[in-house]
């Protein structure tokens, strides 16, 4: 099995006025192609920081992050951005859709960086796959929360990433929509991608191949 994400003894601390917050403390983790890993833990345990470090958005203080065989933190800022565009997809609890763009254009924002030639065909295909074809010209304020998360999923998958990072993707959804999102993540893993999900949701952990627990910046279990 190809290793898509590897974290080696990753550490990330934040200095604040009231002291040092040890958000991630010596975490090592490997996720292979086709693997769906869930990380659970209480708020402030360091899950989101771990996700950011894995997503090439936040450079760890020490340790190494390897994505698809490359160490992106050794690249320049511009190269890291290009790397994210082609290798990593993100799904957030708050969806983070662009208010003034319709569904199709929101999905296509992922192509701003990748400039993929078939972006529009791919976007339409994903919109269809997520049952949003009739909503393609609607803006986010005209969509239900479930539909918004599906748009976010379609956007995350537009550039055919190898790694999908999801931060509480079911946190704002009802059971049915939550199930649909988890099925989608599982489907992505089944197609050969790697998924790292951080969540409070126990059901989400049940769908995953491997559930890990994170407390005080340290990873346990699995």
């Amino acid at each position: 099995m190809d290793i898509i994400l590897e974290l080696r003894d990753v550490q990330k601390h934040f200095r604040r006025s009231d002291g040092v917050v040890r958000a991630v403390e010596g975490v090592s983790l490997r996720i292979g192609a086709g693997e769906f890993v869930a990380v659970q833990g209480p708020s402030g345990s360091g899950k989101t920081t771990l996700l950011m470090a894995a997503g090439v958005l936040m450079q760890p203080d020490s340790g190494a992050v390897v994505v698809a065989g490359e160490e992106p933190y050794k690249l320049s800022a511009e190269q890291r951005a290009a790397f994210r565009a082609t290798h990593i997809g993100f799904v957030f609890q708050q969806f983070h859709l662009v208010h003034y763009l319709n569904v199709l254009d929101n999905v296509l924002t992922a192509a701003l960086a990748s400039r993929a030639a078939d972006a529009k065909e791919r976007a339409n295909e994903l919109i269809k796959r997520f049952g949003l074809a009739s909503r393609a010209s609607h803006v986010p304020s005209e969509l239900s929360t479930g539909e918004r998360q599906r748009v976010a999923l379609a956007r995350a998958l537009l550039n055919r990433p190898k790694l999908l990072l999801a931060d509480e993707p079911t946190g704002n959804l009802d059971e049915e929509n939550g199930r649909m999102v988890l099925d989608c993540l599982a489907g992505f893993a089944k197609e050969g991608g790697a998924v790292l999900l951080v969540t409070h949701d126990p059901k989400a952990a049940q769908v995953s191949h491997r559930a890990l627990r994170m407390e005080n910046g340290k990873l346990a279990g699995g």
Partner: peptide
């Protein structure tokens, strides 16, 4: 927020 998500999606600073 829009800037944050665009940057996460790989949009360059430029």
């Amino acid at each position: 927020g829009e800037i944050g998500v665009l940057r996460a999606l790989g949009v360059r600073a430029r």
